[in-house]
Amino acid sequence: MNTTTSPYVVETDGLTKRFGDRTAVSDVDLHVPRGVAFGYLGPNGAGKTTLIRMLLGLTHASAGSMKLLGLPVPERRAEALARVGAIVEEPRFHGHLTGSENLRVVAAARGPEAHARIGASLDRVGLTARAGDRVSTYSLGMKQRLGIARCLLADPELLVLDEPMNGLDPAGIEELRVLIRSLVAEGRTVVLSSHLLSEVERTCDAVAIVDQGRVVVQGSLDELRSDGAPTLLVASADDTRARSLLGAHVSVDSVTVADGALSVRLHHGTETVAREAAADINRRLVEAGIPVYRLEPQQVSLEQRFLEITSRLEEAA
């Protein structure tokens, strides 16, 4: 199934796009591993779509180089894109054609094998019954599914989906999530750009966080979470005294009140250091005569990590 044995389906090196004086994508080095759901995460206007458009040859890069499926683009663009399916921004169709006819139009560009996959692709996304209806009568969710069916015509090694959850209702989002995971289970790679942190966290295996055109951090979700500052949830008999005491602790970065308990953020350090700090915090509280009801490490969510990274950037700016 694979075009090459490159471990990465997307590799960029110093990729940059400028529009006049404005730099939309700045010196991006991105490495998307094969066979995962990869989230390309960032706020609106961070340059996510511009990077995707460069990768797909929809617009030229101002500087840098890139590879798709191990092939340099734009030099080998046609060969690379033959095994790539993509939805950029929202899927667009000829509204006066039926769903099936719209797929025929794209299959004509892809080749005879793609034409033979039309039925199976429509079936895969559950649109067989509506394939003969004009696309102008489709809901947004149906258009998203038809867009994915269009991607599947390529029997893609890589699918690039730009904000695919936009405008979908919860049931539609769940359907799409299941579909993406099933595609990954088949060995395909799905690159998903989104500003919806929770959806990326629930769908993806690895992420890159992008802000103001730069990739700030990338890696697996576990790596990203473990890279954040460790946080403890502390519930005690006297939160006021406990907060005052912990605020002065050498290992503590900050203390906030969350859900009737204290959220204690520690300074960055290894897991062992964090564990020792937790034991010391417990001992100090008990020695101060404050009964501790609960003390547990908090799982850092992608949202917390994202906010932590982006706020750090804002401070630096």
Binding site: L56, G57, L58, R77, A78, E79, A80, L81, A82, V84, A86, V88, P91, R92, F93, H94, G95, N102, V105, V106, A109, R110, R150, A154
Partner: peptide, 14 residues
Amino acid sequence: NAGVFRELVVTGRS
């Protein structure tokens, strides 16, 4: 006008 041109371009077709 329909926005389909980019969908055709991403097929890699000239």
